[in-house]
Design a binder for these strands. Structure first.
Length: 455
DNA sequence: CATGGCTGCCC
DNA sequence: ATTCTGC
DNA sequence: GCAGAATGGGCAGCCATG
């Protein structure tokens, strides 16, 4: 591969070399994405965007944009041949986010379905006759990874032909306990698949249906689709079940279910409009997700010391700043231990400011009070403190916070900076290793009251 | 034959 | 996954 | 609000290295 690239690059002009480099790494940075291509196709034949909607609806059924473009370019009328059909993945419906039960209920018009949000793999499952194919959220084939799901779908589903969706995760049938995502993702993809499947079987929680017995049902209202789903999922299956689902008519009910879900180790709550169709390929308010981190910005934040920073790439190159390496403090050793890279939540102004401040305190080697396996582009003196929020604390093979000997440390899942530089905090005022360990122990059992305060 | 670096994918 | 920015 | 492009932790798998 390298030698092929060498040949290409050696014979390229500088501008060609730029795109020869960008193409294989998939970072073309053209400012053009799928929706722009759909607009362009419509403009090609119609001179305006009047075919955009049609093109998009076909793209949602057939995620091969190249094929859509080819067919449409040759003959716009032949787009009608694209219909929903088993074994061609459908672009999944996505959910918006809202920070509170009140806002969700208002958006939903006073009532909605509240479902558990499971922290696993989102699966789109296609069955026809004896054949089963399973696709990931990004529409990659995952069939071989999931033998127990394939078997259950093939043998237990009360249906011959269907496309439906669910969340699959590692689950302890005996205790009813949901395992964390880190367990679920240990699923093998190629070698030892059967062994892993037997050791830690996944359970599928079905939450929507798109197609059944030759019919596209995405235009039916959600409540009708749910009934169809209930009719095909067996009651006594070890592997297949329905997502937990409640009709709610008040924000208090949403809160109560949310707290219950969190206390049982689930990721949050999904609110769904009773009447909405399945809106393929779109992030629309038919589905709204609620997670702890969307609302918890006051009670669950973490103050990190910046111990290094990264050179930005692409749109961040001009700021010479891509993010920081954050650490927590341990008063016992008077050292700073890495816990997360933080690359999200900065405005452009903040990136400029941080680069200016941090470049002034760069060091060649890490300060003697820094303990980190991760290496930033530039080390800096432990001086500045930022506030960060995250969804979860996980055990980490790469961060040194809480790491002892061969045992893992701790890290933050989905870290992002909130607010501004904490000029009121010294590095020693940052969150401590002990506090992180305490938060790790508490996180699953922590409930949130309707006022958003920890209980 | 063990392992570090890298990639692609999950969230 | 989350977040910011130009339109 | 859409579209696009930055960025996170961490897993399995591949391959070169030693």
């Amino acid at each position: 591969k390298i030698s092929l690239l060498i040949d290409l690059l050696a014979n390229a002009t500088p501008i060609e070399a730029r795109y020869i480099a960008r193409l294989p790494i998939g970072r073309l940075r053209l400012g053009v994405g799928d929706p722009t291509v759909l607009d362009a196709l419509s403009l090609m034949h119609k001179g305006d965007k009047s075919d955009r909607e049609l093109l998009e609806s076909k793209y949602n059924l057939c995620s091969d944009l190249g094929l859509i473009a080819k067919v449409y370019a040759q003959d716009p009328s032949s787009l009608s041949k694209f219909t929903m059909v088993p074994f061609t993945p459908v672009r999944p419906a996505l959910a918006e986010r809202l920070p509170s039960a009140d806002e969700i209920l208002e958006k939903m018009g006073g009532k909605c379905i509240a479902e558990a949000k499971y922290d696993g793999f989102r699966l789109q499952i296609h069955l026809k006759g004896n054949r089963v194919e399973i696709f990931s959220r990004r529409l990659e084939r995952m069939t071989e990874m999931l033998p127990e799901v394939v078997d259950a779908v093939r043998n237990e589903l009360d249906c011959d032909e269907v496309i439906f969706e669910g969340e699959a995760l590692a689950y302890n049938e005996a205790t009813g306990e949901f395992y964390p995502f880190q367990q679920t993702i240990q699923r093998k993809r190629k070698h030892g698949v059967e062994e892993k499947s037997a050791e830690m079987p996944l359970k599928l929680f079905a939450f929507d249906i798109l197609y059944i017995n030759g019919e596209d049902v995405t235009h039916k209202p959600f409540t009708q689709r749910r009934k169809l789903l209930e009719s095909i999922i067996p009651k006594d299956s070890k592997t297949l079940s329905l997502s937990e689902s409640y009709l709610v008519k008040s924000s208090q009910e949403i809160e109560a279910h949310f707290n219950d879900f969190i206390s049982r180790g689930l990721e949050g709550l999904m609110a769904k409009d009773l009447n909405a169709p399945y809106i393929a390929g779109a992030r629309k308010f038919a589905w709204v997700k609620l997670k702890r981190s969307y609302r918890n910005e006051l009670s669950d934040t973490i103050d990190l010391v910046i111990i290094g920073y990264f050179a930005g790439r692409g749109a961040r190159a001009k700021f010479k700043f891509g993010g920081v390496l954050g650490a927590v403090y341990d008063p016992h050793t008077d050292m700073f231990y890495s816990i997360a890279k933080v690359g999200s939540g900065f405005s452009e102004e903040q990136m400029s400011e941080l680069e200016k401040l941090l470049s002034a305190i760069k060091t060649k080697k890490p300060n003697a009070r820094i303990n980190s396996i991760m290496e930033p582009t530039y080390w800096v003196e432990p001086k500045y403190v930022i506030t960060v929020t995250a969804d979860e604390i996980t055990r980490s093979p790469v961060h040194t916070c809480g790491k002892t000997g061969n045992s893992p440390g701790y890290a933050l899942r989905f870290p992002r900076m909130i607010g501004d530089l904490r000029t009121d905090k010294r590095p020693e005022d940052a969150t401590t290793v002990d506090e992180i360990i305490e938060m790790y122990k508490m996180q699953k059992r922590t409930e949130v009251s309707s006022e958003g305060e920890e209980v």
